[in-house]
């Protein structure tokens, strides 16, 4: 298992390098001069020149590229073009909120989605299954920001049960969780729909296998067949899809943060975009890339745990 994990970690290094290079090209090279973009059309040549010098934008592109990579190796994300503050400071403040939100969404989705998926598969073609399927397809079609707005309208504006906007610091856990409920449900419902659908089809696929028939034939209870045999091997596709959807949830968190005016990496990114803060944008993308690689890594490691065949191949 250790060898497998190490190999997986080594494999992700060239991927990260490729991602960083593409981010550098897209954010730094494509828009032209970042200093000019940050200061706007009316900035004097002098001011642009000074900013370029301070941010190292006057050096040749390949030098900037290597500086960017070496900076990353030392954990240095650079300075914001607009505020001149270290980007890592800002990221350290907002990242926990994004991770908390995404994690809460995933947990909600799995806790509700796996049992509903199993139940709809077992009670295939009953009204229960039909309801479950309509629910999951609706969930998949629901634009996340619209769902968030409906949540705000019903639970904050109408019922006044939860705060509509913002977040509370982690030092006030009760208020922090109170603020988390609506955003987490908005994100979690989508995950719930995905997980239900995928669990249903994974279980259905497995239920027609020979070894399930054998298990039934040797007289195992239906519960044992389902949880001991079917769910165990259906877990492999479910784990991989949960990994994929976790990444798409990260995209959804951008919208949820925007609707609830919640601090987070997504909102920081939108802010940086609107201010043409290209150095911040570049670093935020790097953080996203690292998170995605870590999620993929965890998914692969969990794979190894649920399916011994993968570990040893």
């Amino acid at each position: 298992m250790l060898k497998y994990s190490l190999r997986r970690i080594l494999v992700s290094i060239p991927t990260l390098l490729a991602v960083f290079t593409i981010i550098f090209i897209v954010v730094r090279v494509a828009p032209g001069d970042p200093a000019y973009a940050a200061l706007g059309d009316y900035a004097s040549e002098d001011a642009v020149e000074r900013l370029r010098e301070r941010m190292g934008l006057d050096r040749p592109l390949y030098v900037q590229y290597f500086q960017f990579l070496f900076g990353l190796l030392q954990g240095d994300l650079g300075h914001s073009l607009i505020t001149q503050q270290p980007i890592s400071q800002q990221v350290a403040v907002v990242l926990p909120y994004t991770l908390q939100l995404t994690f809460a969404g995933i947990i909600l989705g799995i806790i509700l989605g796996v049992p509903l998926g199993v139940l709809t598969a077992v009670r295939r073609n009953t009204w229960f299954d039909y309801f479950g399927r309509v629910f999951s397809l609706t969930g998949l079609s629901f634009p996340i920001f619209f769902l968030a707005i409906l949540m705000i309208y019903f639970f904050s504006v109408q019922l006044g049960m939860f705060p509509a906007l913002g977040a509370a610091p982690f030092s006030e856990p009760i208020s922090n969780l109170h603020h988390l409920v609506l955003p987490a449900i908005s994100l979690g419902v989508i995950m719930f729909a995905y997980v239900t659908r995928m669990t249903r089809s994974a279980i259905l696929n497995v239920l027609s296998d020979d070894y399930i028939r054998t298990a039934r034939a040797k007289g195992l209870t239906e519960r044992k067949v389902l949880y001991g045999h079917a769910l165990r091997s259906a877990l492999v596709p479910i784990v991989s899809l949960v990994g994929i959807f976790t990444i798409s949830l990260l995209g959804g968190s951008v919208l949820v943060e925007e609707v609830f005016a919640r601090p987070g990496l997504g909102r920081y990114m939108i802010g940086a975009m609107k201010q043409n803060d290209y150095t911040a944008l570049q670093s935020i993308m790097v953080i996203y890339a690292i998170i995605i690689v870590i999620i993929n890594l965890i998914t692969d490691l969990v794979y190894g745990l649920v399916d011994p065949r993968i570990r040893y191949s």
Binding site: T15, L250, G252, L281
Partner: peptide, 11 residues
């Protein structure tokens, strides 16, 4: 590897 929305936003 990136979520659709984040790629779209970046572009």
């Amino acid at each position: 590897a990136f979520p659709d929305l984040i790629t779209g936003l970046l572009i």
